[in-house]
Simulated assay, not measured.
Amino acid sequence: MNVGLNKTEKAVLGLLIEDSNRTADVLATDIGVTKRTIERTLVSLQKKGKIERIGSKRDGKWIVIR
């Protein structure tokens, strides 16, 4: 499942599996990176088909695709 992912992408996936409502700010704090790094990681994971956004930016959540 996590083949071809860097350590930040793996960490983000793990945290989103636990709680799909986590924001980029919370993810950044949990992992210890900047919010911008999380934003780039989320885009990368979307392009790789690992996550999908359901709902709006404000009220949505992430769905991890296994």
Results as ranks from 00 to 15, higher is better:
Met1Gln: 07
Met1His: 13
Asn2Pro: 13
Asn2Tyr: 10
Val3Asp: 09
Val3Cys: 08
Val3Arg: 11
Gly4Tyr: 08
Gly4Glu: 03
Leu5Asp: 03
Leu5Glu: 02
Asn6Arg: 01
Asn6Met: 01
Lys7Tyr: 14
Lys7Gly: 13
Lys7Gln: 12
Lys7Val: 12
Thr8Leu: 11
Thr8Val: 10
Glu9Ile: 09
Glu9His: 04
Glu9Gly: 06
Lys10Cys: 11
Ala11Thr: 05
Ala11Tyr: 11
Ala11Ile: 09
Val12Thr: 00
Val12Ser: 06
Val12Glu: 04
Leu13Ile: 06
Leu13Gln: 00
Leu13His: 00
Gly14Tyr: 04
Leu15Ile: 04
Leu15Gln: 01
Leu15Thr: 07
Leu16Gln: 00
Leu16Glu: 02
Leu16Pro: 01
Leu16Ala: 01
Ile17Met: 11
Ile17Trp: 09
Glu18Ile: 10
Glu18Gly: 09
Glu18Met: 08
Glu18Leu: 03
Glu18Ala: 07
Glu18Asn: 12
Asp19Arg: 02
Asp19Gly: 03
Asp19Gln: 00
Asp19Ala: 02
Ser20Pro: 02
Ser20Val: 05
Asn21Gly: 11
Asn21Thr: 10
Asn21Met: 09
Thr23Pro: 01
Thr23Glu: 01
Ala24Ile: 08
Ala24Val: 07
Asp25Asn: 05
Asp25Cys: 00
Val26Tyr: 15
Val26Arg: 12
Leu27Asn: 00
Leu27Val: 00
Leu27Lys: 01
Ala28Val: 02
Thr29Cys: 11
Ile31Ala: 06
Ile31Lys: 01
Val33Phe: 06
Val33His: 10
Thr34Ile: 06
Lys35Gln: 05
Arg36Ala: 11
Arg36Tyr: 14
Thr37Cys: 07
Thr37Gln: 09
Thr37Ala: 08
Thr37Ile: 08
Ile38Pro: 00
Ile38Asp: 03
Ile38Trp: 03
Thr41Pro: 06
Leu42Thr: 11
Leu42Lys: 07
Val43Glu: 14
Val43Met: 13
Val43Ala: 12
Val43Phe: 15
Val43Thr: 15
Val43Ile: 15
Ser44Gly: 05
Ser44Asp: 08
Ser44Ile: 03
Leu45Arg: 11
Leu45Phe: 05
Leu45Asn: 06
Leu45Ser: 06
Gln46Trp: 13
Gln46Lys: 13
Lys47Asn: 15
Lys47Glu: 15
Lys48Val: 07
Gly49Ala: 08
Gly49His: 09
Gly49Phe: 05
Lys50Arg: 10
Ile51Lys: 09
Ile51Met: 06
Glu52Arg: 14
Glu52Asp: 13
Glu52Cys: 12
Glu52Lys: 12
Arg53His: 08
Arg53Val: 08
Arg53Ala: 04
Arg53Thr: 08
Ile54Arg: 08
Ile54Cys: 14
Gly55Val: 00
Gly55Glu: 02
Gly55Pro: 05
Gly55Ala: 04
Gly55Phe: 10
Ser56Arg: 05
Ser56Phe: 01
Ser56Asn: 05
Ser56Val: 07
Ser56Leu: 08
Lys57Arg: 11
Arg58Tyr: 13
Arg58Lys: 14
Asp59Lys: 10
Asp59Pro: 13
Asp59Cys: 14
Gly60Asp: 05
Gly60Glu: 05
Gly60Leu: 01
Gly60Val: 01
Gly60Asn: 02
Lys61Pro: 11
Lys61Asp: 07
Trp62His: 05
Trp62Thr: 04
Ile63Met: 15
Ile63His: 15
Ile63Gln: 15
Ile63Glu: 15
Ile63Ala: 15
Ile63Trp: 15
Val64Arg: 07
Val64Phe: 03
Ile65Lys: 10
Arg66Phe: 13
